[in-house]
């Protein structure tokens, strides 16, 4: 087997991690670390010159952060695969990295083996992420799809306990006056609750509200 080793660049302001990863990745027979940088601007400068196949970029670097570096690399050198090294599992951060053009996102809480596997897969135009990260991404994609279709980001809408009570009573077929009596509140307050519910859920009438609640198991079982 005489394959050319995969050329990797690492950028991280954590000197200890940077040196360690350089050594450990360099120990892999199919990898060669061609350069490292301790900040964003030096990373860009070096990557432009060295043209690695894969760049590992820490998300929180000084000068230019990982996102900025990824965006620039994606625009100027789309053939370079960028893997972001992140410290926390934040869906928004992961999404931002993907939107910036990253091909992968590895948490520093992940194992070295996971990192190695990700580098190999990303190089082959595949993706690898933890089940937890995949779950966050699926949920975010579902939200975005809903928004794109003009639907609701339903899971992120927070209804109050009282609003849920009102929806349940609407589902029982009660009028506003009857609901007010049942909940010991004014009819106008019920109207206010219904107005808020329709506004939050972006619905138009009571029928749609009951349908919405039924689909999401928000109605109390009798």
């Amino acid at each position: 087997m005489n394959k050319t080793p995969l050329r990797i660049f690492i950028a991280d302001d954590n000197a200890l991690l940077l040196e360690g990863l350089e050594t450990m990745l360099g120990d892999q027979v199919d990898f060669i670390v061609i350069g490292t940088a301790p900040n964003g601007s030096k990373a860009l400068e070096q990557i432009k010159k060295l043209q690695p196949e894969v760049a590992l970029i820490d998300v929180g670097m000084p000068n230019k952060d990982g996102l900025e570096v990824t965006q620039i690399l994606h625009q100027e050198f789309p053939q370079i695969k960028v893997i972001i090294l992140g410290l926390i599992d934040l869906t928004d951060e992961i999404m931002a990295c993907i939107e910036a053009g990253a091909s992968g996102y590895v948490l520093k809480e992940a194992s070295f083996e996971h990192l190695v596997q990700t580098i190999r897969l990303v190089h082959q135009n595949e993706a690898f992420c933890s089940p937890r990260m995949a779950a966050s991404l699926f949920s975010r994609i579902a939200e975005l799809t809903g928004e794109a279709k003009g639907q609701l980001p339903s899971e992120s809408v927070k209804l109050t306990v009282r609003e849920l009570d009102v929806i349940n009573l609407i589902a029982e077929g009660l009028s506003n006056k009857e609901i007010a009596k049942r909940l010991f509140i004014e009819t106008q307050t019920v109207k206010n609750h219904i107005h808020n519910i329709l506004d939050k859920l972006q619905l138009h009438n009571r029928f749609e509200t009951v349908h919405y609640a039924r689909e999401r198991n928000l109605l109390k079982k009798k």
């Binding site: 200890l16 360690g20 050594t23 520093k108 809480e109 992940a110 194992s111 070295f112």
Partner: peptide, 16 residues
Amino acid sequence: SRPKLLSEVIRNLIER
């Protein structure tokens, strides 16, 4: 040490 990646890097350093 945590995160795990840093811990593995330190372990590797010591073991070498």
